[in-house]
Nucleic acid binder design. Sequence first.
DNA 1: CAGCTTGTCAACCGATGGTCAAGAAGCTTG
DNA 2: CAAGCTTCTTGACCATCGGTTGACAAGCTG
Lengths: 207, 207
Amino acid sequence: MAAPAYTRLQVDERRRQLLEAGTKLFGERPFDEISMRQIAEAAGVSKGLLYHYFPSKTDLFRAAVERATSELQGLVEPTGQGTAFERLQRSLDAYLCWIESNGRAWSRFIQSTAIRSEGQTVVDEFRGRTTEVVLAALTGGREPRPALRMAVKGWLGYLDAAIYDWVEAGDLPRQHVAQLLLAAFGAALLSAQQVDPEISFESTGLY
Amino acid sequence: MAAPAYTRLQVDERRRQLLEAGTKLFGERPFDEISMRQIAEAAGVSKGLLYHYFPSKTDLFRAAVERATSELQGLVEPTGQGTAFERLQRSLDAYLCWIESNGRAWSRFIQSTAIRSEGQTVVDEFRGRTTEVVLAALTGGREPRPALRMAVKGWLGYLDAAIYDWVEAGDLPRQHVAQLLLAAFGAALLSAQQVDPEISFESTGLY
DNA sequence: CAGCTTGTCAACCGATGGTCAAGAAGCTTG
DNA sequence: CAAGCTTCTTGACCATCGGTTGACAAGCTG
């Protein structure tokens, strides 16, 4: 009497497989058009088991997005030598390279961001971290002037929108997109300075 | 034996009242944290009746957002005399004035936008129209170069993000926000031109 | 083969978006 | 004033959703 009713997997292996299935589906359609049942079925497993590994749908989503953001965060983290400008350039290029292969799913994640209300989503946290990294690089850790904060957040919005357009239309080479974003960044800082003359970037070597 | 089981209203009146209730609630919390039952109760009416007037939750949401966007669209529509720059300035100011009184609900709408997948949401359509108006003003109706299109869409993303920050933090006067946005717009166009020299704004009088 | 741990399942729960037939409010007509 | 008609309104109902739970069984250990 072989043919067991189910095959038992190593915990890590099973978890990995379920996360995989979730990531795939969440990357195809927005959060609330995917049911836990669907994800479980896609992994050939019961819904109860899925809940055994991920206590809630939000948790599964969070885990899926977290993997993406941490991967991306690692790539984008400013490193190495050179001026702040050069480091930003490298980070941006790494960002766009990653988008070039994972763009569609990323756009879906970004889109699904809004679902939770209490607190921030993972994507929001990612954005928040990015904002802080950029602002810290500009102010040396001091509290930023409101206009500067708004300019940086605005530029990140520009970045999202531009990337969304890029993924959709795909009619520009990566280098041009990077160039555009870089120029927009400099311009955003200058306009902030124009509004609030107390803002300065002497210490950053951006010029 | 008076005390009727329910009071019958004029169709328009009832519809208006339900739309009102929906608008209020959707403005307070994101789409899927509001149930149709809640909306119906808030209006002192059965859920079935709500469905009689709005065939689906999405439709009700759409109607609520549509009223806001059309109101906003009317305010922002570039009008009157002066250079393109001055008209943009006026439109932006009207936009920000409207946000100043309706900002919280608007942010909620924008946030809830992501929920739908098939096709565009009303907010997306609004954004699309805005994009077209701006692009048309810049190219005179011709198909825009990709870099210009991306720059304009990017700037609209900047606008959304800046407004979101403004509504949240509220530590900048409206005039400064307008100034910042205006400067960013000019800068976005210039960086597009920098990437693609074929872009020109001779006919627009923006300089 | 017995016993244990624990990965796995299926049945179940309350709430949600959505449907529908029946009823009653308020008009028109004799 | 009563009968009839239109249609606004209701409450019971349905499938499905996210989430919970108790029981089964896979695969070790002895």
